[in-house]
Design a protein around this nucleic acid. Structure first.
Lengths: 262, 262
DNA sequence: GCAATAGTGTCTGTAAGACAATATTCC
DNA sequence: GGAATATTGTCTTACAGACACTATTGC
């Protein structure tokens, strides 16, 4: 027996005796809903868009960049002292100047050959940012350009690596989560009107309980995860940003419902 | 410019210029429901259990094994020519002689320091096997022992790495999926009685629509993802394995419902 | 007053929950 | 007949969907 105990064995453990991955990356599908208040006193028209960056054709030394010119999800290599999730936060800040956002992991992409550089594993996250964050965005070091695209527009683009697949998965995931969890709140201001919430939900559902406006306003106040926004005096807050008539504002309560098919 | 194009650049790309992970593993939470038909003509009593292996204290050369003696999820290193998902299938077959099962990825565990051997990333899957598969199980090379445990029992065990966290996540995930998808079918034979389905659902829900037997049998036949099992003559198949009285059998249709909180 | 959104009322059919009653069958 | 599960029936209340109607307000 060469080693007496686990401590000693660990000192002799050398991972390079085995084949190890060549890289570990985090890619982020940054969703935003453009709540276009085109006219005053109108409920917004929502559009679900994804932020993509166009990869630079070459780096600062003039070397051609892998998959240069193609559009891609923001992301990059995870450093050994961080989790993929932390790397995602860092990359978003570096590449797209996007901060303070909600992240959720939704998949791992590790098909051999997906990246010509070698055995590279990608963790996919989706993030949701409200529109105003994106106004502050700017292209950074290895991003030539940044843009917002609908799923339809993305299908026309040439995408890097297997990002088209990742993006389709991301859209499916956000659709599911919008209906089964309260993530819709990430697309909305803290306090919102029912027509704003409804315009977000209409992106992903044609349930009559949502489409039918009367039914929606009748039932929404009863949802266990919503409550009316009130001021110090206990009065319901109102706004007229979606209609001439002042309308109630709501907020999400800290309650996670568990819908069931049974 | 050193390189003329992407081909040439790739030839010179050397991942070892960067720090890369020391390992990429797949761990599998193998669930099974023991449908104990203790007495004849009784609906089964269901218990949700997880398969764990006890890590060998040392390998065949007598070297101490990392985290030897502790209980752990079956799993192991992913090879460079496979996906984590494929590795999971292989490991299950090798370590626990479990084959032909449904796998679902549910998380990545990459907190620095989670494995003393270095920067090791684990993909977590859950798998569902019906009871009979497990009767064929046997401990293999680096597993000293194999056992089935309830969540309560697991909390008493000493577990390797961060497997206790992974296991808790796995139980949460299976609970959610049982209620929001049709995975329940993986715990059941292809054709089952309503009391068998109900005993599975009772593990994770106290919804009155499930608890109340009359309500359950009244509504279940109307679920869009269930249909009566019929023979060639078009008659509803029946069995008396859960009661003296013959009872209808059902099967899952190929329909994925999308429950909603709105 | 018009247009547009917010919110309420009405009606009908169906679903949910509780629970009673009946049916079947092995022993 | 008894025990145990399966299945149907009853009743009451709640909810869903459709849609008409009222309210508010800037122009």
């Amino acid at each position: 027996m060469k080693y007496q105990n686990e401590e000693e064995m660990l000192q002799h453990y050398d991972s390079k005796e085995y084949v190890t991955p060549d890289g570990y990356t985090a890619d982020i599908a940054v969703f935003t809903i453009e709540l276009a208040y085109k006219e005053e006193y109108k409920p917004p028209k929502a559009e679900l868009k994804l932020l993509l960056i166009q990869r630079a054709k070459s780096d600062k030394d003039g070397e051609p960049h892998i998959q240069g010119g193609k559009w891609a999800l923001p992301g990059g290599f995870v450093k050994p002292d961080e989790t993929a999730s932390k790397a995602a936060v860092r990359e978003l800040s570096e590449e797209a100047s996007v901060n303070n956002i909600k992240l959720k992991h939704f998949g791992v992409y590790d098909t051999p050959g997906r990246d010509k550089r070698g055995w590279i594993i990608s963790n996919a996250f989706y993030a949701i940012v409200t529109n105003d964050y994106l106004y502050k965005r700017k292209a950074a070091d290895d991003a030539e350009n940044v843009g917002l695209f609908t799923l339809k527009e993305i299908d026309q683009l040439e995408l890097a690596f297997d990002h088209k697949i990742i993006i389709h998965d991301a859209f499916q995931m956000i659709r599911k989560d919008l209906l089964q969890t309260t993530v819709a709140k990430e697309f909305l201001p803290k306090e919102f009107t029912l027509s704003e919430l409804r315009s977000v939900l209409l992106l992903v559902s044609d349930d009559p309980g949502i489409v039918n406006n009367s039914a929606f306003v009748r039932d929404a106040p009863k949802y266990p995860f919503l409550e009316e926004a009130r001021n110090q005096k206990g009065e319901i807050k109102k706004t007229n940003r979606t209609a001439k008539q002042m309308t109630r504002m709501f907020r999400f309560k800290d309650f996670q419902p568990m819908p069931s098919i049974y």
